[in-house]
Amino acid sequence: MKKLIRRFSFPVSLWLQKDEKSFLTFVIAAFMLAMFATPYPQIAMWVGFLFAAYAAVANDSIQTLGTFIASNQDKKWWVLWLFIGGIFLCTVGYSWVNYNGDVSHGRLMAKGFEIAPTKFHFLQIAAPIFLLILTRLRMPVSTTFILLTSFATAPAAIGKVLAKSMSGYILAFFLGVTVFLVISKYAKKYFVGEAKFGWSIAQWITSGTLWSVWLMQDAANIAVYLPRNMVFGEFMGFAMVVFIGLGLLFYYKGGRIQKIVTEKSVITDVRFATIVDFIYCIILFYFKLYSSVPMSTTWVFIGLLGGREVAMAIRKTGDHSLAHSVKLLLKDFSYAMIGLFISIAIAIGVNDQLSLTSMLETVPAEFASGISKFFSRLGL
């Protein structure tokens, strides 16, 4: 290959970074496994779940846990694991007992998701691998969209998820702008030097609560492969895989995670992290009460960070000018949109219930009615 290129063009050397090689091997192995497992629903269900759990733990949970891990590097890994893992077990355990064997706090009881799949399409099992690759390409793709849209049994359900997520983005953006307009001057003056110990306690409480509320939304993404009413053995399988996965996440903390935190959240100061986590937590909790429709937490997170950037630029306390912040905001938003289109493409490819025409007719109508409902509830 190299010789061929050299013969016909400028001297070029094609190369792969070392960690990209291992990721590539992983991706190929995962696709093969998905391919072999797809015809057997009983196996495919657990393979899909494993991939989704990996994507959720290794990718998505960084949004909520990243700053927590980064600022607690000095603590023992198993202390953090027992704390976060314990909250996970309590949250899904509570749901399992109170929602009749469902671990998603009723998210999967919403119309269009209430029936567990009995047979799988290859792309449904492979969807989490697509997600991992897209994240590697720096696209903030929403797990909810890519996984849940491929399982939705009606286009209306997708429109509802979309409307709720967009409402989440808008609300997060405006809350982010408002809060940081108020506190950014103050923060710049007082948030200097080493943070007091009180902030660490506040961070543990906020991170723990956020993690729990986040799980109430996002456990649906992993559990969508499994039966809606899990028996004890299935529940234990579900809980233990994620619990052990979290253990590995904390054990191998460091380089890679640190990188994702700085890429994904831009926040390393414990005080800012606590405030952002707190707002994030309140928004997610509001939407949990709002309706049982699943939503994208990634969009809420992007909206919140965008709002914060813009507010800090207006107050001239950030690193960027207002124009630059708006540019970043638009870039993030357009990447999220690209991710959305890819998710919908996968959904149409996978899902026999969906076609392009039905999507074009039903989804925008449901989306519009969902958004107007959101604003009328807010009294606007």
Partner: peptide
């Protein structure tokens, strides 16, 4: 001695994009 400078191109991103498109196309057509 060959003094021509060699351009190094990191191809992982192209590979990933190609894999995505290939797997999707095959899966949908199959």
């Amino acid at each position: 001695m060959n003094t021509t400078s060699i351009t190094r191109i990191e191809i992982s991103k192209f590979l990933y994009a190609a894999i995505l498109v290939a797997v999707y196309t095959i899966a949908v057509l199959a």
